[in-house]
Write a protein that binds this DNA or RNA. Structure first.
Lengths: 341, 341
DNA sequence: GTGAAAGCGCTAACAA
DNA sequence: TTGTTAGCGCTTTCAC
């Protein structure tokens, strides 16, 4: 790769002049400017961003840490963030943690080493102390998909999402209502969907019964789907009563649960209503189409990047917690449940 | 962020000694080593990879260019590549081109500027000359998801995939067989699935009829799904005969086609068999489960990264085209078609 | 308008 | 065993 030095030599000017031309600084004669540009083209010169970064103490690199890129929800966020970042001249270093705090920690260190200008992170489910250390090292950080009081963060109101589903199921006339998700476990982040769900049920006079709670493991994305299938099947076999409607904590889980229900001869949605969370692209494609909660993914990506860039440019000093509104999307998986069979 | 200089000062040694300790070089007294490490911990020192890159002319950065990260097929590849790369100490700079050659070109230049050690690219559908320029600039490149004779590449044999689907449909007894996909168009890369599909049909004595060809647009991932839906619906309305079985060029297209068929009152799979391509995670989740071609995605990611690292390390000099075998996955979407209605 | 030179944080050759 | 020094490619200050 050609360097400024080489261009300078060819064009018979100093390397400093080449730098001026490349960076569009004024105070270079038109003659030299032309000359330099000619050699830039001829040698297909590309500035060495590594050298620039070192000199300017600015990498134009953003670290993006997600827990599971295979989840279409995160894939969509990555898509959006990359797109917007590119517009502002930033590149993305992507790290996938597979919801593993150890990997998350490694990723943070690695990115720090790489002198990223800012970090966007969707933290793993497990509570971890290394996030706190981000504070002390004075790095521009935006947390996404969950609200963290001590960081700038952008997320959807999961609690309200859970409430929306609960009310919808109650409105349809369900009394026996279940939940499929991680639930609340010490050392893990709170399952706010579940919290809101139970709360809204209670407000409608229905106490959530643990018999209808199918608890699935956290932080195992690789095997998560199998886990869900097994847990649901096991539940159907071993418990003596099942609910008439289930709320699965995300769409992926809902799909898998539907499979398990079907394989146990419960037809969805005729015998069993089911709702998901995320409104991923498949939720309207699968049959039955899935009632779910839509998260404004593009907005999350957009807003989060915007905030991060502001932090990087020191425009934004203090924390801001952007809580976006979830939306209920009603589809066949709950609508076509048949009462009074 | 602390630098070696600061550590050196604190520990009362030279900066070179700090470097030696950090890099585990021999020839440092145990006393100084201990002393240095103590300050490394105290100041939470992280080496500046930018400076290292500049000095060593080695960034440990890999560029990964994909056309559409929202497609779970690519998301899975990214997942795998990132995971393997991390194991070898590489980070991934991800660029999403949205199947746009202009963005692709920009991404390549940007990555080059960033001194990446190697590039893995799933090229856009549109033929473009800038890929050729990669050759001249002597950069380690591995092309994925399509075979390019003049590069090292890793892909599945799409032609054979098309054949497998064709034979399967013929074996089931279908005579009127259609295709939903981009087809072959000048300036775009060949649609090998279609080629193999037609070839195998012909070998079975069935000539592919253009009446059963639903051609969809290329390079519009953002609107691709809508496009498919519209094209399929339009086709059903305007043509006087439809096939009994359709092969959609990927799973995403198949899902969308199913929706369109259903909305036009053709039941899948009873009235109409359909097959996809990719075997993405949803193909077994949707109902009807989708007959499709499985691509060994993990293997693609794995092998491609392996080859790229070998190229980077100059172990591999010449091109290698790894063509992986596709596998037919038979599911309800074709199996449950009802003949003799 | 232009060039020389310092320095970003690191590695490695050389000297001591 | 340790320190001094040059230099990776760039930006920017200073002097002319």
């Amino acid at each position: 790769m050609a360097t400024m030095e080489e261009i300078a030599e060819k064009a018979g000017v100093s390397q400093a002049t080449v730098s001026r031309v490349i960076n569009g600084h004024s105070g270079v004669s038109e003659r030299k400017r032309k000359l330099v540009m000619e050699w830039v083209r001829k040698l297909d010169y590309q500035p060495n961003r590594t050298a620039q970064s070192l000199k300017n103490n600015k990498s134009n690199l953003i670290g993006l840490i997600v827990s599971d890129i295979s989840n279409p929800y995160f894939a969509e966020i990555v898509h959006e963030v990359e797109k917007e970042a590119a517009k502002s001249g930033y590149n993305i270093i992507l790290c996938n943690t597979e919801n593993d705090t150890k990997k998350e920690k490694e990723a943070i260190n690695s990115l720090r080493s790489r002198q990223i200008d800012g970090l966007m992170i969707a933290p793993a489910d497990k509570q971890a102390t290394h996030l706190k250390s981000l504070k002390t090292m004075d790095m521009s950080v935006v947390v996404i998909t969950q609200i963290k009081e001590d960081f700038t963060s952008v997320a959807v109101d999961h609690e309200k999402g859970g409430e929306l589903i609960a009310r919808h199921l109650v409105d349809l006339g369900h009394k026996k209502i279940g939940y499929i998700g991680p639930g609340n476990k010490k050392g893990y982040r709170k399952d706010y969907k579940f919290v809101g769900f139970k709360k809204a049920l209670l407000e409608s006079g229905i106490e959530f019964k643990n018999d209808y709670f199918i608890q699935i493991d956290r932080n195992l994305p690789e095997v998560a789907l199998k886990n869900i299938y097994n847990k649901v099947s096991k539940n159907l076999r071993e418990r003596n009563s099942i609910a008439t409607a289930y709320f699965a904590h995300n769409d992926l889980a809902a799909y898998e649960a539907i499979k398990a229900f079907e394989d146990c001869n419960y037809h969805v949605p005729e015998d069993l209503a089911i709702a998901g969370f995320d409104n991923d692209i498949y939720s309207q494609i699968i049959r039955p189409s899935l009632t779910t909660i839509s998260q404004p993914i593009k907005t999350i990506g957009h807003v989060a990047l915007e905030l991060l860039l502001r932090k990087i440019d020191n425009i934004e000093e203090d924390h801001e917690n952007v809580i976006l509104e979830p939306k209920l999307i009603i589809r066949d998986s709950t609508l076509k449940y048949t009462f009074n069979k």
